[in-house]
Amino acid sequence: MPSTDEELVARSQGGDLDSFNQLVLRWERPIYALAYRVIGREEDARDVAQETFLRAFRALKGFKGQAKFSSWLYRITLNLCRDWIRRERRTPVVQPPEGIDVIELAGETSPSESIEELVSRHELGRAVGKAMSQLPEEQRTAIILKEYHGLTFQEIADLLDCPLSTVKTRLYQGLSVLRKQLREAGVESTFGK
């Protein structure tokens, strides 16, 4: 039975480095994914993820468990992303791959999915990334936390320090803008149905 985050945190605070590394292993991919979706650059997202764990480790003694460990990590990550955006003074740019390697993609194909469908799926992913990068930061962050990390409205509100109603409004506005942009990009709204 794997240990819970709380148990690992407690052991880490007692000086058990292995326990903290288990937390890192458990959360590195969601944290990296969050950073990538917010700032849109792979290398920088990796740096942000690394810095997140470094800061978490340094501040671990001060973590009292008021929030979930994951929420605490998300907060650190979002702060770092915000710093990055401010420092770079630019909106996130999603860097799509130069081209789609069909052979490479073929390895990801499910038995029921053709190459055409696979390429279409990747093209759609790129279109979504581009549309997402054009959203205002607040809307983009709310959608990312909700759609890709499954946080509740309340958890998002706590993370972003805003009222619950604001979170819902940002989600609605963000989704509406995305729907419009994707339609303009030629993405069929019936895709996947």
């Binding site: 890192v24 997202a45 979504v128 995305l178 729907r179 895709f191 996947g192």
Partner: peptide, 26 residues
Amino acid sequence: AELGATREQIALWTPPDGDLGFRIVR
């Protein structure tokens, strides 16, 4: 329905497979 379809679409946006493997070394 439209917002639901949009949610399905944006679910397809996946980050690249970053080779992570972070760990703290004492």
